[in-house]
Amino acid sequence: NITNLCPFDEVFNATRFASVYAWNRKRISNCVADYSVLYNFAPFFAFKCYGVSPTKLNDLCFTNVYADSFVIRGNEVSQIAPGQTGNIADYNYKLPDDFTGCVIAWNSNKLDSKVGGNYNYLYRLFRKSNLKPFERDISTEIYQAGNKPCNGVAGFNCYFPLRSYGFRPTYGVGHQPYRVVVLSFELLHAPATVCGPKKST
């Protein structure tokens, strides 16, 4: 009989979020998941679920829940969905086509923008091939755009693969920082350890 609540607040209220190319993952297990707390949290810009209804989450049990978190621009949030393409979905964070879970995003301009620009948040701009679902690539190898080998030196046709967002408070909404948490639900042939409040007695 599990009684402790799942530590969703640790994920959602973290002081610093990860850059999207180096997205953070927390495994959540052996706890009671009260999703209504999240669902009623006012400032969400997006709360979209795939393969599961957000209002039914509290009735369900899962083997594991993974909480992935990172920061992207407002106009990139739409790429955090199954079957998407674009710089983020291709080179930074890719969801599987059969994704079961929820994508939760909110504007973090007050936290993550600075006058003069916040350059701490990076994304991958160049990559030889697209990421596989949930693949994480933190390499900083110089990207070779031409035929000539770069030998690890940036220059003509040789690019550092990461780019900084440089968030400023005055940017338009599409270019403002958004914090994103992706909850993915794993249902294995194993005992369920993460259940909603109704199922955990």
Rank of each mutant, 00 (worst) to 15 (best):
T3G: 09
T3V: 07
L5D: 10
L5W: 09
C6S: 06
P7E: 11
P7H: 09
F8Q: 01
F8M: 06
D9G: 11
D9M: 15
D9Q: 13
F12Q: 02
F12A: 04
N13D: 01
T15H: 07
R16E: 14
F17W: 15
F17G: 04
A18D: 08
A18Y: 06
S19N: 09
V20W: 04
Y21C: 02
Y21A: 05
A22T: 07
W23H: 04
N24D: 12
R25W: 02
K26N: 05
I28H: 01
S29C: 08
V32Y: 10
V32K: 09
A33W: 13
A33I: 14
Y35A: 08
S36E: 10
V37F: 15
N40E: 12
P43A: 07
F44R: 10
F45P: 10
K48M: 05
C49V: 00
C49M: 00
G51A: 04
G51L: 01
G51I: 00
S53N: 15
P54W: 15
P54K: 15
P54S: 10
P54G: 07
T55V: 09
L57Q: 03
D59N: 11
L60C: 08
C61W: 06
V65M: 13
Y66I: 11
D68K: 01
D68G: 01
S69G: 01
F70I: 01
F70M: 03
V71E: 02
G74H: 05
N75A: 12
N75E: 13
Q79L: 02
I80N: 02
G83R: 10
T85C: 06
T85P: 05
G86H: 02
N87A: 15
I88G: 03
I88S: 03
D90T: 06
D90L: 07
Y93K: 02
Y93F: 04
K94T: 06
D97W: 07
D98E: 09
D98W: 05
C102H: 00
V103Y: 00
V103E: 00
I104N: 00
K110D: 14
D112L: 00
S113G: 10
S113M: 06
V115S: 14
G116N: 14
G117N: 10
G117E: 09
Y119H: 15
Y123P: 02
Y123G: 03
Y123F: 10
F126Y: 15
R127P: 03
K128H: 13
S129T: 15
S129K: 13
N130C: 10
L131Y: 02
L131R: 01
K132W: 06
K132Y: 07
F134P: 03
E135G: 08
E135Y: 04
R136K: 11
D137E: 04
I138K: 11
S139G: 12
T140V: 09
I142R: 07
I142Q: 08
Y143V: 11
Y143N: 08
A145C: 09
A145D: 11
N151E: 12
G152M: 08
G152L: 08
V153W: 09
V153P: 09
A154W: 08
G155L: 07
N157E: 14
C158Q: 06
P161H: 02
L162S: 03
R163Y: 09
R163C: 09
S164F: 07
F167A: 05
R168V: 11
T170R: 10
Y171L: 15
G172F: 08
H175M: 14
Q176Y: 01
Y178K: 02
Y178W: 09
R179F: 03
R179D: 03
V180F: 01
V182E: 00
F185W: 06
L188P: 12
A190E: 14
A190R: 12
P191F: 05
P191R: 13
A192V: 13
G196W: 08
P197I: 15
K199V: 15
S200I: 11
